[in-house]
Computed example of a mutant assay.
Amino acid sequence: MLANYLIGLREGLEAALVVSILVAYLVKVGRRDRLPVVTGGVAVAVAVSIGFGALLTYTSTNLLSSFQSQEIFGGTMSAIAVAFVTWMIFWMRRAARGMRAELDGRLSSALRLGAFAVALTAFLAVAREGLETALFFWSAVQAAGDTVAPVVGFGLGIATATVLAWLLYRRSVTLNLARFFTWTGAGLIVIAAGVLGYAVHDLQEGGVIGGLRNLALDLGDNISLSSWYGALLKGIFNFTPQITVAQAIAWACYLGSVMTVFFLGGRVPPPHRKSRSDSQVGSGAA
């Protein structure tokens, strides 16, 4: 539940902030008459995202007859979800500062074109977040197994994000969004590492990747998933008592490399200050 709550909170707040920016711009320019159009575009984007998630579930349970094909489909979709969420984490960190100006510019152009353009702008802005969220949430639910806890956690996360975005819009609360997206991004990287490990295991069971019997870790006699700590490890890290060598390598390589780039790659080195001797050398060369 905790991992899916974080997914719902982070991804839901991203989408809610996009909507609040669009609404705030229309209010600022005195075009409240276009608010229903934006609502319609957002509603269609949400419906498409839910439909996409339902399509993934239907495909994996009804259209794929063999166990092997189901495992290959699940593993492939989970790997794609990890790639998308990783890209979105870095994109949001880079583009968050200029998001308002970008959306304001798009909506300003759309207002001149008409109602359909406004609705399309809202749809595209939210659909990008919604489709990626649906895919990642579906993968996380698949990894969690047959339980309603992920759905409950995700729903609570979405509800929290909606309330938080409304309070931010009303300026009832303040939130350091840069710090929020940094730490929730780090949390999503940990979750994505677990989903990637699950994807590798699925692909091993589907016969795409070998080494299903080569275990790096077997804690079946020591840790039970029915215990509170086992459930906690399962919920946050997608932990399983039996971990193959391929799973362990994928998990460690992804988590180590992506987390390092996430925290260190975005740092800008301080500008080089020329010393007095450097200035003199430069003047002489000139």
Results as ranks from 00 to 15, higher is better:
Gly265Ser: 07
Arg112Trp: 12
Ala231Tyr: 15
Val208Trp: 15
Thr240Ile: 03
Ala186Ile: 11
Leu135Gln: 10
Ala24Leu: 14
Leu232Trp: 07
Val82His: 06
Ala286Leu: 15
Ala15Asn: 03
Leu215Val: 08
Arg93Gln: 10
Ala252Phe: 10
Leu64Ser: 01
Arg10Cys: 01
Ser275Val: 08
Thr162Ala: 15
Phe180Glu: 06
Gly157Met: 09
Ala144Phe: 01
Val173Ser: 14
Val29Ser: 04
Ala149Arg: 07
Tyr229Pro: 03
Val148Ser: 11
Thr184Cys: 04
Arg171Thr: 13
Tyr25Arg: 12
Ile209Ala: 00
Tyr254Cys: 11
Tyr5Ile: 01
Val261Lys: 08
Leu13Gln: 01
Ala127Asp: 05
Leu124Asn: 09
Glu129Leu: 00
Leu124Pro: 00
Ile7Leu: 09
Arg179Gly: 14
Ser224His: 12
Arg34Gly: 00
Gly256Tyr: 06
Arg276Gly: 14
Phe136Val: 09
Asn176His: 15
Ser226Phe: 06
Tyr198Phe: 15
Ala140Glu: 04
Thr174Gln: 10
Ala24Asp: 11
Arg170Asp: 12
Gly265Gln: 10
Ala165Thr: 06
Gly210Tyr: 03
Thr57Val: 02
Tyr58Thr: 08
Val148Gly: 06
Val190Gln: 01
Asp104Glu: 14
Gln70Pro: 05
Arg10His: 14
Phe154Gln: 02
Leu22Gln: 07
Asp278Glu: 15
Ile50Cys: 03
Val195Asp: 11
Gly207Asp: 05
Val245Asn: 08
Gly211His: 05
Ala252Tyr: 00
Tyr58Trp: 15
Leu255Pro: 04
Ser66Leu: 09
Val82Tyr: 12
Asn214Arg: 14
Tyr169Thr: 02
Ile21Lys: 03
Val126Arg: 06
Val163Phe: 06
Ala165Met: 05
Gly114Trp: 06
Phe263Val: 09
Arg179Ile: 12
